[in-house]
Design a protein around this nucleic acid. Sequence first.
DNA 1: CGACTAGGTTGCTTGACGCAACCCAGTGTG
DNA 2: CACACTGGGTTGCGTCAAGCAACCTAGTCG
Lengths: 162, 162
Amino acid sequence: MLRNDYPGQICSIARSLEVVGERWSLLIVRDVMNGHRRFDELQGSLGIARNVLSARLQRLVEENILERRAYQRNPERYEYFLTEKGLDLWPALVSLLAWGDRYSPDPNGPPMLIVHKECGGAVSDRGICEQCGKVLHARDARPVPGPGMADATGNAKVLAAR
Amino acid sequence: MLRNDYPGQICSIARSLEVVGERWSLLIVRDVMNGHRRFDELQGSLGIARNVLSARLQRLVEENILERRAYQRNPERYEYFLTEKGLDLWPALVSLLAWGDRYSPDPNGPPMLIVHKECGGAVSDRGICEQCGKVLHARDARPVPGPGMADATGNAKVLAAR
DNA sequence: CGACTAGGTTGCTTGACGCAACCCAGTGTG
DNA sequence: CACACTGGGTTGCGTCAAGCAACCTAGTCG
């Protein structure tokens, strides 16, 4: 993927991409938002090489996008959680999702939908509830499998189980 | 940077990133939005290697995000323009811009601001005019150099001239 | 005649990614 | 007691993409 620097660019987009523009980074953030919190779970869901996943997680933790917490001792085992900074990537992910749905449509319909937890309304490309009109944030919404989601993928199972 | 495939991912975010997640791609789209339309201009502004820029432009044209048009003959010289598909990446770029401004702040303030052409209002992270409340699209807004923009960069000059 | 411009292409080197194998501590299983 | 399994990684190796500099082509300018 990307190297993580864009020398000479004086632009907040470039600065954002230095952090989350590396190959896999945004997909890791998306997966953690969808409830995948452990190393093996992420590795299986993404199909990413283990050494690369390890490097990305370290970077995302350093950048304060993820937080690594032990969920047991002896032996220590870890989970990754999104920080506020990580959760605030939600609008960008929603935009990319909407763009992908519009321009690379699945014949069966979108594989993933995002709905407003409070009222169940669909979420627009701007992260706004189309039913109640509220401007939403990561915690206000929830992914649900859409009509295009294949039957037996890991993602589908996890999403359906939530 | 990124390779351009995420095998096994059934997700519109992954599909979007297969197209625009490659290193430099989104920055090229941003630059074209900001009025850089020619090969050498893009190369200078971005500091990207010429062979890589050539490959990216070809891919973006293939994907119907950019359009290549001759602006003269003898010899033929070309410019690149955004298609509707390319223009529709604007909300995602605005989100990333806002995220970068919030979490990697420039001590002097944001280097680039986006304003609503019609009323001059600032544009929010959702691409909404904070003054008149309208949901905006690429053509409704315009970048202006912010307080953090250094004095003599190529970007600054171009932006100031618009 | 030589230099310059615009828009690339070619060749070489470096570094990131993918893959498989291995490691380690603790927990079952026969 | 030996053995396998789990979770969370690390190591080594080969390949492919990115960075850099040089070159190419068609036409214009001095």
